[in-house]
Nucleic acid binder design. Structure first.
Length: 399
DNA sequence: AGGTATTCACATGAAACTATTCTCTGAGTTAGG
DNA sequence: TAACTCAGAGAATAGTTTCATGTGAATACCTGT
């Protein structure tokens, strides 16, 4: 019955939010501030599509949270609207290549494209070129102009090499009626540099760079959203400024700032407060960070978790340690929980991945006569470590 | 003392392998006419 | 004879293993003073 009174209490309490989804990452605002120039530029490049002429391929660079995706989607949306009104055979497809198990290989990319045309293709079993020809057939059935947006395209090539991109650029050569225009979005500013020159020239006909927002701009963006998202007077002065400062520190990532603000609001609400204080922001930052890590660790394979557990066990003893030590302890652990032991080669890769995820800090050092190795140390806060340890023990069935 | 050469303990890369999931094909089997 | 079944060949993928090669600097080993 306690739970009933909790819910009653919950209902009685006023929410701090007026419209929470304004602060969710999927929300697309009507007008995008500080990006007018870039939006206009994209529009200029893609405009020929409305006359069913193929625009040049575009490549868009910019760090995370600089509004690339938002701007492109905005342009596409209005083009689609116009196309519909004028009965134009214009189609747009937006794909995020980061999505695991959806668009992270060549096969799956094409399969996903086919899905966008309302057909299904088996998840495996067919040769890739057959899937390609199905796609061509589908696309070529009638004259269409396709705007294909590939977000985080660098992820795709990192895994599979740039053959994929080469194949994509060749699509138009295979088609008789339809035409495809590619829009690539990349977080990596030097992405095109180490690309096959043939691919590069045909892919990046036009290039566009999104600069990061500065703290003031982020402040404006936050204020604009907060105005609608929260009830009036909920935000204490200084919160938005602090939030923007946090984000500006992280290369002007607006998405992060908005996330932070939302989580701070949630925390304040959960704590029964009527105002959002600066302290909530600090708390929110910790929570966002820890959630990210916990989430990343949870869906890693057992072997991966075991390696992390080994590091966790080693960490109280000394500040930093080397690959060999981790491997030794890992082997023992594996024996204990009856897991087959992986090679040191593999562990080396796993350590590199852990480093990428920001869970550990690994630096390759040379100890001179005593070899070369990774110097690993944990870079997380105490309470995250405890949470992680608990999680791993549960997941690995350790006592 | 100063300069090279060694050497350690891994790092890093490429290719190949394994297990799993899934499709397609065609031979063999079955049931109905 | 058409429909059905089922084994076998072949793909894609994730996660590894195997083999080969690379590497930075603390030491060992010279050399000439």
């Amino acid at each position: 019955m306690k739970i009933i009174s909790f819910f009653e209490n919950f209902l009685k309490r006023d929410s701090l939010f007026k419209e929470k989804n304004i602060l969710s990452s999927s929300y697309t605002p009507e007008d995008i501030i500080f990006r007018e120039e870039q939006i206009q530029e994209i529009a200029n490049i893609l405009a020929p599509a409305l006359r069913l002429e193929k625009p040049s391929n575009v490549f868009i660079y910019g760090k995370t949270g600089t509004g690339k995706t938002l701007s492109v989607r905005h342009v596409l949306k209005s083009m689609l609207l116009l196309a519909e009104k004028n009965n134009l055979e214009l189609k747009t497809i937006y794909l995020n290549c980061k999505l695991k198990r959806v668009v992270d290989t060549e096969y799956r990319l094409v399969a996903q494209l086919i899905k966008e045309f309302g057909e299904e293709v088996p998840p495996t079993g067919l040769p890739t070129d057959e899937v390609y020809s199905t796609f061509y057939e589908l696309l070529d059935k009638k004259k269409i102009l396709l705007l294909l947006v590939l977000d985080e395209i660098d992820q795709l090539t990192k895994k599979m090499g740039d053959d994929i991109l080469y194949n994509l650029t060749r699509i138009n050569a295979e088609l008789h009626n339809s035409q495809v225009c590619l829009v690539g979005i990349s977080n990596n500013l030097v992405f095109a540099e180490n690309l096959d020159p043939r691919v590069k020239s045909s892919l990046s006909g036009e290039e566009l760079i999104f600069p990061p927002y500065n703290a003031l701009q982020i402040q404006d963006i936050l204020r604009k959203r907060a105005e609608i998202a929260f009830k009036p007077g909920v935000l204490l002065p200084g919160v938005v400024e602090k939030c923007a400062a946090y984000a500006a520190r992280e290369h002007g990532d607006a998405r992060r700032a908005i996330d932070l603000l939302r989580v701070a609001g949630e925390l304040a609400e959960r704590g029964g407060k009527l105002k959002i204080e600066i302290a909530h922001l600090d708390e929110a930052e910790k929570k966002v960070e820890s959630d990210k890590i916990i989430c990343a660790v949870t869906d890693q394979p057992k072997q991966f978790q075991t390696v992390l557990y080994a590091i966790l066990l080693l960490s109280p003893q000394k500040k930093n340690f080397f690959t060999g030590e981790i491997y030794d302890l890992y082997q023992e652990l594996c024996k204990k929980i009856k897991l087959n032991v992986l090679t040191q080669r593999r562990i080396s890769d796993i350590l590199a991945e852990l480093d990428m995820l920001g869970i550990i800090n690994a630096k390759i050092i040379s100890k001179g006569r005593y070899g070369r190795t990774r110097e690993v140390c944990l870079s997380l806060e105490e309470n995250i470590l405890l949470k992680l340890k608990e999680l791993l023990e549960k997941s690995l069935n350790l006592s």
